[in-house]
Computed example of a mutant assay.
Amino acid sequence: MTLTLDHLVVLADDLQQAVDQYIARGFVVTPGGTHADGLTHNALIVFGDSTYLELIAFLDAADTRDNVWGWRQYGGKGGGLIDYCLVTDDLEQAVAGFKQRGLPVGNPTAGGRKRPDGMELRWRSARFWQAGRELPFLIEDITPRELRVPPSIPHPNGVTGMHELLIAVADLPRLSRTFSTLLDCATPASQPHRRYDATATSFQLGRHVLTLAAPASKASPLQQRLETLGLGPAAVTLTSANGASTAGRSVTQTWFGSALGSTDRG
């Protein structure tokens, strides 16, 4: 059984407006289609490392119905990172293993999306029972993944993939133990994260890094995140072939409710 980072979910109030904004920032955006529940539609920003950003919006802002992920409550707040997904080649085995290890995960359920060209995509997903979105949801493709995730087209801004996902948490020791169980690995030592005035623990998942970060003081930007939007993905580091740093990598941070901005990572 494999488990890798699949995509990050970026919630928008208006999908076309979000698409236009990301195109203006130098991304190539591919229309995704309408989900099987009839509540949401999406567009994809696919990277060379096979991950992607899913831009998603509810079709009818006046409709009070929510999807199974509970994302509607975060509408009207400017848009941004709201969830993240890991892909596996055997969801039944993954869920059974997580249950055996004591993790609170639900059974697989059917999902799908209809692409603009009429192609029907099918998958199964599972989610962990949790108050926030610290833990990912899981997906296994029924139709081939390459139908769900189109080939990457070079982005004019030079972004090539994802490096690190920062996840805002309140109880770092507890979540670190949970992630160790989830990923079946030892618990790394926590370290100061000076950029966010936080204490953090980082886990390697294939070529990507998942970092759990808890605010070290009330002045931490993560503290505001926790108070206003709760627990979950807060920022992503995107790799770029055009980076000016000594490592050849630029850093792009995207926060829920704020625009993309770029800095260099030395």
Rank of each mutant, 00 (worst) to 15 (best):
M1I: 02
T4A: 10
L5E: 02
D6P: 08
V10L: 15
D14F: 07
Q16K: 09
V19D: 12
V19Q: 15
Y22G: 00
A24M: 02
G26F: 11
G26M: 08
F27P: 06
P31Q: 07
H35C: 09
A36Y: 06
A36R: 15
D37M: 10
G38Q: 07
T40P: 08
T40R: 15
H41Q: 14
L44H: 11
I45P: 00
V46F: 09
D49N: 12
D49G: 11
Y52S: 05
L55W: 04
I56D: 05
A57V: 06
A61E: 06
D63S: 06
R65N: 09
D66R: 04
N67K: 04
Q73C: 01
G75K: 00
G76D: 04
G76C: 09
G78P: 02
I82N: 03
Y84F: 15
V87I: 15
D90M: 06
A96M: 07
G97Q: 15
G102D: 10
V105D: 03
T109S: 12
T109N: 00
R113H: 08
P116N: 05
D117I: 10
D117G: 08
M119R: 13
M119P: 00
M119D: 09
E120M: 13
W123M: 11
R124Q: 15
A126Q: 04
Q130H: 08
G132W: 09
R133F: 07
L135Y: 11
P136V: 13
F137W: 14
E140W: 04
D141G: 07
I142Q: 10
E146C: 08
L147P: 05
V149H: 05
P151G: 07
P151I: 03
H163Y: 06
S176P: 13
L183D: 05
A186Y: 10
T187L: 09
A189C: 03
R194V: 09
R195E: 11
D197P: 01
D197R: 10
A198L: 11
A198H: 03
T201P: 03
Q204Y: 02
Q204R: 12
L205M: 12
L205W: 09
R207V: 06
H208M: 07
V209I: 14
L210D: 01
K218G: 05
A219H: 12
P221E: 00
P221I: 01
L222E: 03
Q223A: 12
Q224N: 05
L231E: 02
G232F: 03
T239S: 12
S240H: 14
G243T: 02
A244H: 12
A247D: 13
A247Q: 14
G248R: 12
G257Q: 09
S258C: 03
L260V: 07
S262L: 08
D264W: 09
